[in-house]
């Protein structure tokens, strides 16, 4: 089973990844169940889903930074042709930061309040690159320029509390790309910012992709954000990928009722004055029902859905969905 977006070998190919979290009293939460997806070189993959759908766990398992209680129980994470899950901790450490960069949700806590912006960029450079002090300084200025920060020389001496959220997120992005990583993981990078700044940060990410050929795994719960810069989208529900494909195709023709519901609940309300919502709440990941995980909330549910989980199947060569009734879903 392969859902590669590109015919050439993808940068990151995750197959059959399963993550379990050991809860209290022997409860095992299945945070990810048989995830398969791939991110091509220079492409932006959007990971969309509600809270608790396993988006962040997916990103953390790629980084091998899962919390202590969580364990990868199966699957492979191929990155640049190597399986990250079997790498030694030492090899993994040298890969992080150098080959994979990360941006987090809240820029106000992403930088240490006690050091100037320049010091923090410098720290990232020192960890991997063999550069002299002057070289690192020049590189820091270059990085700030490339993320669109005006008068970078002056900004280097400023402290995080002297900068706005949007500026800080740019600095975080500068640090993330400091060592020319091939992959950037952005975990809700715009959620904590206000809407005008969100667009700027998204444009920045798109610019980095275009100029540096960097691949981006963008985690978000907002279809608008995904539509803005993603090439491909994977929709996650209850630890599974329920739909995946190029962003245009999914927008024009969603093939899973959950995708459709998400799209409608993130848009502006049509006619009525109530924001459309999805009734019910996601299933308990420690006690999943048989059949499709979305069945309880699905407007198109059939008896078959409750008995038998639908496998993800290809609708077009690069668009796939896990629903028995994909073909009947209205746009």
């Amino acid at each position: 089973m392969s859902f590669d977006q590109t015919t050439i070998e993808p940068l990151l190919a995750v197959s059959d990844l399963s993550v379990e979290i050991e809860g209290r009293e022997g409860r095992t939460v299945r945070a990810a169940r048989g995830l398969s997806f791939s991110v091509g070189k220079g492409r932006v993959m959007g990971v969309i889903g509600e809270s608790g759908s396993g988006k962040s766990m997916t990103a953390l398992s790629v980084m091998r930074l899962l919390p202590r209680a969580a364990k990868v129980t199966g699957g492979r994470v191929m990155f640049q042709g190597e399986d990250l899950l079997t790498k030694s901790p030492r090899a993994m450490r040298s890969l992080r930061g150098r080959a994979i960069g990360m941006i987090l949700q809240d820029p106000s806590v992403s930088l240490d309040p006690l050091y100037s912006v320049g010091d923090q960029i410098d720290e990232a450079l020192r960890m991997h690159a063999r550069m002299g002090k002057a070289e690192r300084h020049a590189r820091a200025v270059e990085l700030l320029t490339s993320v669109g920060i005006p008068s970078p020389e002056d900004r280097l001496d400023q402290y995080p509390h002297e900068m706005s959220g949007g500026m800080l997120q740019r600095v975080v992005a500068a640090i993330a790309i400091a060592l020319n990583p091939a992959l950037l993981i952005a975990d809700e990078p715009t959620t904590a910012l206000d809407p005008t700044i969100q667009v700027q940060v998204l444009d920045l990410l798109a610019g980095l992709r275009d100029r540096l050929g960097i691949s981006i795994l963008l985690i978000t719960h907002d279809f608008g954000v995904a539509a803005h810069i993603c090439d491909d989208i994977m929709v996650m529900y209850a630890g599974e990928v329920v739909e995946m494909g190029p962003v245009r195709q999914i927008f024009d023709r969603p093939a899973h009722p959950y995708t459709r519901a998400l799209m409608h609940s993130s848009g502006a309300p049509e006619g009525g004055n109530r924001l459309p919502t999805i009734d019910g709440s996601p299933p308990d990941l420690a006690d999943l029902p048989p059949g499709c995980a979305f069945a309880q909330r699905c407007p198109m549910v059939q008896p078959r859905c409750r008995a038998e989980a639908p496998p993800r199947r290809a609708l077009t060569p690069d668009h796939s969905a896990a629903c028995w009734r994909s073909e009947e879903i209205p746009a």
Partner: peptide
């Protein structure tokens, strides 16, 4: 749990 300690870990500090 703050971002900067997490990101420091990501950056192999």
């Amino acid at each position: 749990r703050t971002g900067y300690v997490q990101l420091a870990k990501v950056a192999n500090v």
